[in-house]
């Protein structure tokens, strides 16, 4: 990132943190109209610095690593596919994976904010799934929080010299799961229980979202490993350019 770009990102970051501190807390995707106005706006503003960083990061990829553009399109498409698949789960309800983990592992977490936003926009506008008023909150959980956790876990595993495939699995699965933990938290913040407050609500929402998501997170982890295996066999030059193969012994 250039100096100017860094400045814009940090300015937006400071702005959004202050913005979110000021309003007092009153009291899968979140459904349209189901977050109070203040929450909707606050989550949206909180996303701004990440979206800006994502834009710059994608710009950089476009201008400096043109060869990897196809790969970038593929990781975006991966999120597109996975979030269209509503898979039955052991809790007797369905949910869908996020698919943002693959991109976070290969490109880092920032570009996923933009790619995830595109997926969410498609679903909110055409499918009545999620919503425009809850777009900020959903972007934060699926396109920002999830990918950052994925990236963090992946880096941690790498520094601990965990087997690379195991690292990819853990990172993608836990990032997916974390997305829905954040969703539960967002809903709990908006709907604290009369008895027990936010904590009690959090437990309730977690029992729906996080529990349903566990098998799906495992599926996302396994699928992501499968895709990475394929990319490692055929797209080595691109992966090397992304620094993905750095430190890995030549296979």
């Amino acid at each position: 990132m250039t100096k100017l770009q860094k400045r814009i990102v940090s300015l937006l970051a400071v702005f959004s943190v202050f913005f979110c501190l000021t309003p007092p807390a009153n009291a899968m995707h979140i459904m349209e109209g189901y977050l109070p106005f203040v929450h909707s706006v606050a989550w949206g503003v909180l996303c701004l610095p990440f979206l800006a960083a994502g834009m710059f990061s994608i710009q950089k990829t476009v201008s400096q690593k043109r060869n990897t553009l196809l790969l970038l399109a593929m990781v975006g498409a991966y999120a597109f596919v996975l979030s269209a698949l509503k898979i039955p789960s052991v809790t007797g309800s369905s949910s869908h994976p996020t698919g943002t983990g693959l991109g976070a592992i290969l490109f880092g977490p920032s570009p996923m904010a933009i790619l995830g936003l595109i997926v969410l926009l498609f679903q909110a506008i055409l499918l009545a799934h999620g919503g425009l008023t809850t777009l900020g909150a959903n972007t934060f959980s699926m396109a920002i929080a999830g990918p950052f956790v994925t990236y963090g876990i992946y880096r941690l595993c790498k520094s601990l010299k965990v087997n690379r495939m195991a690292a990819v699995f853990l990172a993608a699965a836990l990032g997916d799961l974390f997305t829905y933990c954040v969703t539960s938290f967002q809903l709990a913040l908006a709907y604290p229980s009369e008895v027990g407050g936010i904590g009690a609500s959090l437990a309730k929402f977690m029992s729906v979202f996080a529990l349903t998501q566990i098998p799906l997170a495992i599926i996302e982890g396994l699928l992501t490993v499968a895709v990475v295996v394929g990319l490692e066999s055929w797209a080595k030059p691109e992966l090397a350019q992304l620094g993905y193969l750095k430190g890995a012994k030549e296979a």
Partner: peptide, 25 residues
């Protein structure tokens, strides 16, 4: 195997029975 978001809607109604969604798709 309904969507998990539908279940969340039920919980919201349980916690805040008076809540009216203020926007529609």
């Amino acid at each position: 195997f309904g969507g998990a978001d539908g279940q969340a809607e039920e919980i919201i109604l349980e916690i805040a029975p008076d809540y009216e969604p203020w926007a529609e798709s």
